[in-house]
Amino acid sequence: MELTLTPNIAAPDDFYAALLATHDGLSCAESEALNARLILILANHIGDDAVLSQALHAALPPKKRNPA
């Protein structure tokens, strides 16, 4: 399976607002912990090794990424 890197969220502004809202009132450490939990939950949902490794790579800083 291929990692989706084209728009795939129906209501992007709504999702973004909801993402920020989950962090409301959290300290830096709490936000960081929430992000880590979120990554693990989403990664498990995806499950597919190939997609996950593409995602790990896509998330690297640009200069650490292999040219596409």
Partner: peptide
């Protein structure tokens, strides 16, 4: 450490 604790919490 952050991911370790996230795994344990979940």
């Amino acid at each position: 450490r952050v991911f370790r604790d996230a795994v344990l919490t979940l």
